[in-house]
């Protein structure tokens, strides 16, 4: 069983190959460069190095968001087209869940991966490892980091925060949570594409044609349009 995973939902670009019980290849960069130019060459290089042909793949797993709209779309378009054209199952995994899996496996407490969504907001969710598998406690959402801190302060457990954007929100989180907050080390802030492959390995394939990113937010024009429509009805 060979699994190819693709994550382009934020600045980190990750591609991995999982073969049965072994991670045979993994490629990660965390630079502000164009994903559209670099993902396919990265997949090509990794598969070449690992002697895996496209037809050898048994499953494609992709980070489906939240994240940068364009970034997520690049990964999802490649993954869904590959899965469809090779007639292989496709699995989408939350971009936040990959973070949680990447840094929280041996952490006794809850895990809060996050990335910045501008103006004090973050994309985040709450996860926990229970008997070796990762479960979602609070669904992925978009909110102000100070509101998130208040919500988490009601939990009785330590919270592990992960993500490259932590420096932007760390002070706000610490102010409310004090030493309830634990911050992952810098080597843990890139989501591991191998964890993405592992998360998707045992999940069932999804309907490929209708597979779309989880943007969390409506497009701005659509949100405004709905707002106006609602006002007209009142």
């Amino acid at each position: 069983m060979k699994v190819l995973s693709i994550d382009t939902s934020n600045y980190p670009l990750g591609v991995a190959l999982l073969d049965e019980e072994k991670v045979i290849g993994e490629y990660i960069t965390n630079v502000k460069k164009n994903h559209s130019i670099r993902v396919m060459p990265a997949i090509d290089m990794l598969m070449n190095d690992c002697d895996v042909k496209p037809a050898d793949l048994d499953k494609i797993v992709v980070a489906k968001g939240p994240g940068s709209y364009t970034g997520v779309r690049i990964g999802v378009t490649i993954a869904k087209t590959l899965a469809w054209t090779l007639n292989k199952p496709l699995v989408g995994i939350s971009s936040l869940e990959i973070f949680a899996a990447s840094a929280g496996r041996y952490f006794n407490g809850v895990i809060a991966p996050l990335f910045d969504a501008r103006r004090g907001q973050i994309y985040t969710g709450l996860y926990q490892y229970k008997e070796g598998s990762l479960v979602s406690l609070l669904k992925d959402q978009l909110l102000l980091s100070k509101d998130w801190a208040a919500k988490l302060s009601e939990q009785n457990e330590k919270v592990l925060f992960i993500g490259n954007d932590l420096p932007i929100h760390r002070a706000v989180l610490e102010e409310t949570l004090k030493n309830q907050a634990i911050f992952a080390a810098l080597t843990e802030h890139n989501p591991r594409p191998a964890e993405l492959a592992l998360l998707g390995r045992d999940r069932e394939g999804e309907e490929i044609h209708s597979f779309v990113p989880n943007y969390i937010r409506l497009a701005e024009a659509e949100a405004n349009w709905l707002e106006v429509k609602k006002e007209k009805k009142l």
């Binding site: 364009t70 779309r73 469809w84 943007y215 024009a221 659509e222």
Partner: peptide, 23 residues
């Protein structure tokens, strides 16, 4: 409904349609 093409919405629709149209 927007009186013109909204780029973000166009991109979202393309992802929804692409494999269907290919097939």
């Amino acid at each position: 409904r927007f009186g013109g093409v909204v780029p973000e919405i166009a991109s979202r629709h393309h992802v929804e349609q692409i494999t269907i149209v290919l097939e």
